[in-house]
Every structure is written in C-alpha cells, then in structure tokens.
Simulated assay, not measured.
Amino acid sequence: MSLRISDAVVWQETGEGISLYHTETGDFRTLNETGSKIWLLVANSGEAQPVASALSREFAGTNATLIKRIVVDVHEFIGTMVEQGLFEESLT
C-alpha cells in the first residue's frame, strides 16, 4: 500500500520540526523530531515498511524487542496521520 501526503496539507521544515497546516480543516501542528523523521521518510519513499525499517536500524540496531516496538509505533503514527487526512493511502 502506497502513502502520500494529502494535497490538502501545506508543510515545511522548521528548526522545531515539520510544521503542518491542513487547508480543509484549519488544523495546524508541529511534529516533534521523531514525527518529522517519519513524515520526511514517507514523503520520500511513499511506503510504511521502509520507514519502519529505517527507523528501526537507526534507533534499535539489532535489539529485536525494540525493533518490534518501533515498527508498531511507526504504523500507529502513520495510521493516525491517515485518519486525520494528512496522509492518503492507495493500493498502487
């Protein structure tokens, strides 16, 4: 399943993270460092699994328990972004 940033979202990198504005809902937020990393990886790869793998390598090394936790957290974050209309999923 592919992911992409919704066309309704205007975003930019700032010194504090990624700032997002959802033009349809008026919601504004700034992602923390980890959320910003996930956002940028999705913007570049368009797939959830490579994002989870990249963060697992960066933060967990070979610790299997930590890898599982990171994968779950990344998928939960992405799911929340989809529910809020910030990311869109497609079957292609």
Rank of each mutant, 00 (worst) to 15 (best):
R69G: 07
R57N: 07
E89Q: 09
S19Q: 08
I18V: 15
L66D: 13
S6P: 00
W39I: 00
L3W: 04
E58I: 09
E83V: 12
H22C: 14
L3V: 01
E88A: 06
T92S: 13
T80Q: 14
V9K: 00
L41R: 04
H75A: 10
P50N: 09
N32F: 04
Q84L: 07
E47C: 01
L31W: 01
T14S: 12
T92M: 15
Q84T: 02
G79D: 09
T30V: 13
T23F: 04
E16H: 11
A48T: 02
Q12C: 04
L86I: 06
K37G: 00
G79Q: 14
A48R: 02
V10P: 00
L3D: 03
I67D: 01
E16R: 15
V71Y: 15
W39P: 03
V51M: 07
L55P: 03
A64P: 15
T62G: 10
H75C: 11
Q12P: 06
E33P: 00
D27H: 09
S6L: 05
L31R: 01
G79S: 13
S45R: 10
S6F: 05
G85C: 06
E24A: 09
K37T: 02
K37I: 08
A54E: 10
F28C: 03
V82R: 01
G79K: 12
A54R: 06
T62Q: 11
N63H: 15
G26P: 09
G85P: 05
G17I: 00
M1N: 04
V74C: 14
S53D: 15
K37S: 03
A52T: 00
L86T: 00
T80E: 11
F59R: 07
T14L: 14
M1W: 05
L20M: 05
S2L: 14
I67L: 03
N44K: 14
E13C: 09
L55A: 01
Q49K: 12
P50C: 13
R4S: 10
W11M: 03
E58A: 13
E16C: 03
E13F: 09
N63V: 15
I70L: 09
L91E: 15
V10N: 04
G26L: 05
S53T: 13
N44C: 06
S36T: 06
D7N: 00
N32P: 08
G35V: 09
D27Y: 01
D73W: 09
S36P: 02
L86F: 00
P50E: 01
T80Y: 14
E16Y: 14
M1P: 03
Y21G: 01
T80K: 11
V42C: 04
E83G: 08
I5K: 04
T34W: 08
E83R: 13
N32G: 09
G46A: 10
P50D: 06
E58Q: 13
L31S: 06
D7F: 12
T23I: 06
G79T: 07
V10E: 07
L41T: 00
V9I: 06
G15Y: 15
A8V: 13
K37R: 11
I67V: 15
E83S: 05
S6Q: 08
E47D: 13
Q84K: 09
V82C: 02
E58C: 11
M1E: 06
V71C: 12
T65Y: 11
K37Q: 13
